Simulated scan of single mutants.
Amino acid sequence: MKNVMSNKFAIALYVLPSLLLILVLIYIPIVLTGYYGLMDWDGIGQMKFIGLENYIHLLKDKMFWSSTYHSILLALFSTISLIAYLIISIILASKIKGANLLRKIYLIPMLLSSVAIAQLWLKIFDPTNGMLNKLLEMFGVENTPLWLADPKLVLFAIFIPIVWQYAGFYIIIYYAALKNVPEEIIEAAKIDGANSAQIAYKIKLPLISGVIKVTIVLAIVGSLKYFDLIYVMTGGGPNGSSEVIASLMYREAFKSYNFGYGSAIGFALLVICLVMTWVIRKLTVSKEDVQF
């Protein structure tokens, strides 16, 4: 084994397949997306080079900025929901009765496809026979909302199933991190007179801060490129009030056959995700991280 690890050719030979996969599946498509953004192309016929025209149009496109705003709102909402996930995880990790059953219940949405979840919530939001409006009617609400048809409500209505869909994913991450906190530290804090809230805030949270930072990046970047559930539930409507960057990209490339402009939107989405990741890392860096 030592001979292999000291042989640079052998190391390169082992690493080469992974590098080729990364190159073919990630970096080449990124370069091609940026290249197609320089073209006037319907995705089938002859490509025509138009330089930065698509990217200039992108900066002037009100629909692009509107969809970017919606994506940022979704990212903000998803980040705030991490607080609820963290609280639930702390409760589940506190050896309460039924914790195992609750963990399994929270994981159920992860077992369903986004299309199935979208169809389920379409039934719940149905204005005439939906469960949500029926409950409101039981409490005396006469003019029940048109959840997915009202431009002022549709975006926030869609946020609810998205948060529900990913609850189990983040809860299980936080739960696993909390379970790795040394029991000796918690016992020492209890002996010193710390209550449950103090233990959670001053001991558990600092010890899993690295995991929290990772989930913030996952939540924000995942929200910025979110597509499937929104597309199934509203298709970006009504009148673009639930359009996000990914759905706009799909509509331009595969419905309007403006593949060049769609590629420009896709490349812009990549840049936005990279910038947001860099900003989050800069904002969440700590002295301990730097010293480490």
Rank of each mutant, 00 (worst) to 15 (best):
T234S: 13
T234K: 06
G235R: 09
G235A: 10
G235F: 00
G235P: 08
G236F: 07
G236A: 04
G236V: 02
G236N: 02
G236M: 10
G237M: 09
G237Y: 04
G237Q: 13
G237P: 04
P238F: 12
P238D: 10
P238N: 03
N239V: 06
N239H: 06
N239Y: 01
N239M: 08
N239I: 12
N239R: 10
N239K: 09
G240I: 12
G240T: 08
G240K: 06
S241I: 07
S241L: 00
S241F: 00
S241C: 03
S241V: 02
S241P: 07
S242Q: 01
S242M: 02
S242H: 00
S242A: 06
E243P: 02
E243V: 03
E243W: 01
E243I: 06
E243G: 05
E243S: 07
V244S: 04
V244T: 01
V244H: 04
V244M: 04
V244C: 02
V244P: 00
V244D: 03
V244W: 00
I245V: 03
I245H: 01
A246D: 06
A246R: 06
A246S: 02
A246M: 02
A246F: 00
A246G: 04
A246W: 03
A246H: 13
S247Q: 13
S247T: 15
S247G: 10
S247W: 11
S247A: 14
L248V: 10
L248K: 14
L248M: 05
L248T: 01
L248A: 06
L248Y: 15
M249T: 05
M249A: 15
M249N: 13
M249S: 13
M249Q: 11
Y250H: 06
Y250C: 14
Y250T: 02
Y250W: 14
Y250R: 03
Y250P: 09
Y250S: 13
R251Q: 15
R251E: 13
R251F: 14
E252H: 10
E252I: 13
E252F: 10
E252D: 14
E252S: 12
A253I: 12
F254A: 13
F254E: 02
F254K: 07
K255T: 11
K255Y: 15
K255P: 07
K255G: 13
S256E: 15
S256Y: 15
Y257N: 13
Y257E: 07
Y257P: 11
N258S: 15
N258E: 14
N258M: 07
N258G: 10
N258C: 09
N258T: 08
F259W: 09
F259S: 13
F259Q: 09
F259L: 07
F259M: 10
F259Y: 15
G260Y: 03
G260N: 07
G260F: 02
G260T: 05
G260Q: 12
G260A: 08
Y261A: 10
Y261V: 12
Y261S: 03
Y261E: 03
G262I: 04
G262F: 05
S263F: 03
S263I: 11
A264S: 06
I265N: 08
I265E: 06
I265V: 11
I265L: 11
I265Y: 02
G266I: 05
G266N: 02
F267L: 00
A268Q: 09
A268K: 02
A268F: 05
L269F: 07
L269A: 07
L269C: 11
